[in-house]
């Protein structure tokens, strides 16, 4: 049975509309958290809220890329339809199947190439270099280690001494020591803080060192325009700076297993004083459990 092309087209458009609504739907069905999340995470074709210093540069890049692609898409689309009509078979006219070698098409191809080179070399590479590669000075940045696992984000803060303690996979206990901190053997590890939430200061560069305990995950802060794969055996730094306080989402952007959807944490952007108070509180010995 031959399906009409118009039906296929309709189905494609419907699928595209459903897909565009996916972020809003995902936000609605995401696991319940104790705290409401701030910001918008993409209604139809809009980008999520941006609360980072550099986010607008990534957004601009995305917008420019889309604008150029839209011009190309529409331009090629019009040309395609024109060719279909102009060279079609009709009474007294044979259809043309051979390529037409003409100078204008060469110029057009070169123009597209130049646009793509400009996008890559003129926009993407410089933005990537400054936003991703040029880490802020370590003494000015707030540093957190992020350890991914199926299916949670673990956050490791250095504590009052500012030094990260030694970790050892042999010491990992999923309930009591998820990071495998050597609290007995390394003095720097004694004051280290572990949390399932990311707390960072506002208006200060933050460096997150990303790693993974098991499979490949992807550390995704939509409101910071940060997305970095977490690879077992590697510690990859990413940096960003928040310009607004609030509570936002940390997601995993790499399908990492059957509970990938639940790999979500909260990011609290706080004034420095609130952050210090939280770190002090979190740094206290764990509360005793009484049956």
């Amino acid at each position: 049975m031959q399906v009409k092309k118009s039906w296929i087209l309709l189905a494609v458009i419907a699928a595209a509309l459903v897909a565009s609504a996916a972020p809003a739907w995902a936000q609605a069905v995401a696991p319940k958290t104790t705290v409401p999340i701030d910001g918008e995470y993409g209604r139809f074709f809009s980008l999520p809220t941006d609360v980072s210093k550099n986010g607008h540069r990534i957004d601009n890049l995305i917008h420019w890329t889309h604008a150029f692609m839209a011009v190309l898409f529409v331009g090629w689309g019009i040309f395609f339809v024109y060719c279909l009509m102009r060279f079609r078979q009709r009474p007294g006219h044979q259809a043309h199947y051979e390529l037409v070698h003409a100078k204008p098409s060469k110029y057009l191809e070169v123009a597209v190439l130049i646009v793509e080179i400009v996008l890559l070399a003129g926009f993407s590479v410089p933005i990537w270099a400054s936003v991703k590669n040029d880490l802020p000075p370590a003494d000015k940045a707030f540093r957190v280690r992020v350890v991914a696992e199926q299916f949670a984000w673990n956050f490791h803060y250095p504590g009052p001494d500012g030094q990260f303690g030694r970790t050892d996979p042999k010491l990992v206990d999923t309930a009591t020591n998820p990071l495998g901190l050597d609290r007995e053997g390394d003095p720097h590890a004694k004051d280290d803080i572990f949390a399932l939430e990311l707390h960072i200061p506002v208006n200060q560069p933050v460096i997150c060192d990303i790693s993974s305990k098991d499979v490949i995950h992807s550390f995704f802060l939509p409101v910071m325009r940060v997305k970095q794969d977490a690879l077992p055996g590697m510690r990859i730094p990413v940096w960003f700076e928040a310009v607004q306080t609030g509570t936002y989402e940390v997601a995993c952007a790499q399908l990492c297993g059957n509970n990938h959807y639940s790999m979500r944490a909260l990011m609290y952007i706080q004034p420095a004083t609130d952050l210090e108070a939280w770190l002090r509180e979190k740094g206290k010995p764990p509360e005793e459990f009484v049956e």
């Binding site: 696991p31 319940k32 958290t33 104790t34 949670a152 206990d173 309930a175 009591t176 949390a195 399932l196 939430e197 944490a265 764990p286 509360e287 005793e288 459990f289 009484v290 049956e291």
Partner: peptide, 22 residues
């Protein structure tokens, strides 16, 4: 070897305190 309260904040449905059991 005191039992400690575990961080269950990841899931708001886990309302009762959970203690370490190792």
């Amino acid at each position: 070897y005191k039992r400690t309260k575990l961080d269950t904040s990841k899931d708001a449905n886990c309302t009762k305190p959970v203690g370490s059991e190792d």
